[in-house]
């Protein structure tokens, strides 16, 4: 049985077609990334999958339960971590957890046991009885995640879980996601952090303008755009090195300055390396570091959303 089945989901708001025949499935135990630029339809998809809004066309099932006709049965299986840390700041951490547990029909003994475990897991035990108004952004985010797990869900929706967090909270949350996955919990992750999706997800879907542009594993997606290889180089030069100068090197299609380094996009890295060494010698500059890079998931994302190019071998949906 699939954890999620989205079957030709469409959603129209007046004249705006927010989603257009979105199809995908997520297997039980899978970590599935859902990527897309702002306004692509990510939030609308989550709102449909969690039963907050109904699709104009199509159906969605959560562990076989139709989210429109069997909303409550479907929702009992899921935990939701919303994009905003939507906790009650006038309540304590413990009261927030217990309230959420009551909404999810978790019995008293079970919710108290689970609440204690989750506060421990997220490093919030010492702040259990403090009002959350004074919590840091990271603490609020960790509590939001704990609230999403209070009912021991089989499927967890995570909307931008680590956006703008401190290092400690980031690490805790990433560890928890990995542990959940090992325990067989299905994770549906939306994020702007493409590297996070690359590291955490078994498969990712890229949505653009309400349509699924591609669905595959991160590595397979990257292989589809081998033309986007690059050489990353840093110089120690007596004169400043300009982007325009590096663009003159043969086979370089684009130069991106990244801090003290330059990224030279090319289809032919060996030729570019030769060109860089010749350029350095002519300028009496030293090459401090030079690395060849394959395409990143971000490159795939930019290709599919920004440039709107369909690539061979990717399961695309028109």
């Amino acid at each position: 049985m699939f954890a999620i089945e989205a079957l030709s989901l469409s959603k129209q708001f007046g004249h705006l077609q927010a989603l257009s025949h979105v199809d995908f499935t997520v297997s039980e135990g899978e970590t599935f990334g859902f990527l897309g630029p702002n306004g692509a339809g990510k939030t609308t998809t989550i709102r449909i999958l969690t039963g907050i809004t109904t699709p104009t066309e199509g159906t969605a099932r959560i562990f076989g339960k139709d989210i429109v006709r069997e909303t409550i049965a479907a929702r009992k299986q899921i935990g939701i971590v919303h994009e905003t840390s939507n906790i009650y700041t006038d309540l304590t951490a413990w009261q927030n957890l217990m309230f959420t547990a009551e909404l999810y029909h978790v019995g008293k003994a079970e919710r108290e046991k689970r609440g204690t475990e989750l506060l421990e897991l997220f490093g919030l035990s010492e702040r259990r009885d403090d009002h959350t108004k004074g919590f840091s952004k990271g603490m609020k985010r960790r509590l939001t995640l704990a609230m999403g797990l209070i009912n021991n869900p089989r499927l967890l929706f995570l909307d931008e879980p680590t956006s703008g967090l401190d290092v400690q909270s980031n690490l805790i949350i990433r560890d928890v996601i990995r542990d959940l996955n090992e325990q067989g919990v299905t994770v549906f992750l939306t994020t702007h952090n493409i590297e996070e999706a690359n590291l955490a997800c078994d498969r990712v879907a890229i949505i653009n303008r309400g349509r699924i542009a591609a669905i595959d594993s991160p590595e397979r997606l990257k292989k589809t755009i081998q033309s986007v290889q690059s050489v990353e180089v840093a110089f120690d030069a007596p004169q400043p090195v300009l982007v325009e100068d590096l663009e003159q090197i043969p086979t370089v299609s684009e130069v991106i300055k990244q801090g003290d380094k330059f990224r030279l996009i090319t289809e032919d890295p060996p030729t570019v390396i030769d060109g860089v060494m010749a350029f350095a010698a002519a300028r009496r500059a030293r090459v401090i570091s030079i690395t060849t890079l394959g395409p990143s998931l971000e490159d795939v994302f930019i290709r599919l959303t920004g440039l709107d190019i369909r690539t061979k071998g990717v399961k695309t949906v028109d």
Partner: peptide, 14 residues
């Protein structure tokens, strides 16, 4: 405004 209302309308209750 605080987005906590989303908790209520996404919970497994009518």
């Amino acid at each position: 405004r605080m987005k906590t209302f989303d908790r209520l309308i996404s919970a497994p209750i009518s």
